[in-house]
Amino acid sequence: MDIRIRIGKRIKELRQELKLTQEKLSFKAEVDKTYLNEVENGKRNISIVNLEKIIRALEVKFEVFFTGID
Rank of each mutant, 00 (worst) to 15 (best):
R56L: 13
G68R: 08
E38W: 05
A29K: 04
L36K: 01
Q16G: 06
I46K: 03
G8N: 08
Q16H: 14
R10M: 13
I5A: 14
N41D: 05
K61A: 05
I3S: 10
L14P: 06
N37T: 07
N50R: 12
I7H: 03
G8S: 10
I3R: 11
K33S: 10
I5R: 14
R15N: 04
F65A: 06
N41K: 09
K43P: 11
R4E: 06
E63S: 15
E17W: 04
E63I: 13
E13R: 15
T21P: 00
K9Q: 15
L14R: 01
E13L: 15
R10D: 15
I54N: 05
R4C: 05
K33Y: 03
R4W: 01
L18A: 11
R6S: 15
K33T: 13
R10V: 10
I55A: 03
L20H: 06
E23F: 05
E17I: 00
F65S: 06
K43N: 11
K33I: 11
A29Y: 06
D32S: 02
F27P: 02
V49A: 11
G68L: 09
I55R: 02
K28P: 01
A29G: 06
L14Y: 08
T67P: 01
E13I: 08
L18I: 03
M1N: 11
K28T: 04
E17H: 03
F66E: 07
K24L: 12
E63W: 09
L18H: 03
I48Q: 09
V60R: 10
E23C: 01
K33V: 14
L25Y: 05
F62M: 13
V64D: 12
K61G: 10
N50Q: 12
V39S: 05
K19P: 00
Q16T: 11
Y35L: 05
G42Y: 01
F66T: 12
E13D: 14
N37I: 01
F62T: 15
V60P: 00
Y35S: 02
R6M: 15
E13F: 14
V49R: 09
L36R: 00
T34G: 09
Q22W: 03
K53A: 09
I54Y: 02
R4I: 01
L18G: 04
L18S: 07
K43E: 12
L36T: 04
N50P: 07
I3F: 14
R15E: 03
I3V: 11
S47F: 01
L58H: 04
F27Y: 14
N45T: 10
M1P: 07
I11M: 09
K28Y: 00
E63H: 11
T67E: 12
N45F: 08
E40T: 12
Y35R: 07
E38V: 00
L25R: 01
R6A: 11
I3Y: 13
V49N: 07
I11D: 01
R4S: 07
V60I: 15
K9D: 12
T21C: 02
L14Q: 04
L36I: 03
E63Y: 10
R15Y: 00
E59R: 12
L58G: 00
D70F: 12
L18R: 15
V60S: 03
E63C: 10
T34K: 10
E40I: 08
I54D: 03
R4K: 11
K61V: 02
V31S: 03
F62G: 12
A57Y: 12
A57P: 07
I46Y: 04
E13Q: 14
E23K: 08
K28V: 05
N50C: 08
I46C: 05
